Amino acid sequence: MCKLNNNLGKKHVYSKRHQIVLNNILQKFETKIVHAKSTLFSPDVQDAGFESGAKFWCYFCQIEASKHVVSEDCTVLGSGLLHHISR
């Protein structure tokens, strides 16, 4: 995300390139949200070893988070994003 900080009372200037990059990031994250919302009503559960260690990049926190929630005997697909944003 944007690292510019104007402490001199000036407003932040959004260049055309900045707007394009931010728009692309928001569209990618929206796609992840839409997919995660679909798991709310029809969760897909697999065995515990399915895609073990799968991660996704959170643009806002700037960290990698678990893509799925894994318990000792099953994996709930796509629910890691919901878990991450609910914190």
Rank of each mutant, 00 (worst) to 15 (best):
A54Q: 12
G53W: 11
Q62L: 01
K55V: 04
H68S: 06
G9C: 06
I33R: 06
R87K: 10
V34G: 02
H83M: 04
G78E: 05
K16T: 12
D44M: 09
E64I: 00
E51V: 01
W57H: 15
H68R: 01
V70K: 15
I63D: 01
Q46Y: 07
E51W: 03
A54L: 14
T39M: 09
S86C: 14
H83T: 09
K3E: 09
L4P: 13
F50E: 04
V70H: 12
V70Q: 13
S71N: 14
S71G: 15
R87M: 06
G53D: 07
N6A: 02
G53P: 13
G80Y: 01
N23M: 11
G78L: 00
E64L: 02
I63F: 02
E64W: 09
T31M: 13
R87T: 08
E72V: 08
K67Y: 04
K32A: 09
Q27E: 15
M1R: 11
F29M: 14
C74Y: 15
L8W: 04
R17M: 05
T39W: 00
A48S: 13
D44F: 11
I63L: 05
Y14P: 00
H83Q: 10
N7L: 13
E51S: 07
K55A: 01
L8I: 03
K10G: 08
K37P: 03
E30G: 09
A36F: 04
R17N: 09
T75Q: 02
H12V: 08
H68I: 03
F56R: 11
D73L: 06
I33C: 13
G80M: 02
F29I: 06
E64A: 00
R87Q: 09
K10L: 11
K67G: 01
V45E: 03
Q46A: 14
P43V: 12
H35E: 14
R87I: 05
V76E: 10
Q46D: 09
H18T: 05
T75G: 08
N24E: 11
S42C: 08
W57Q: 12
V69P: 04
Q62E: 09
H68F: 00
N23Y: 08
S15D: 05
I33T: 05
Y59H: 15
H68P: 03
K3P: 00
G49P: 00
I20Y: 02
E30I: 07
I33E: 03
D44Q: 08
A36L: 10
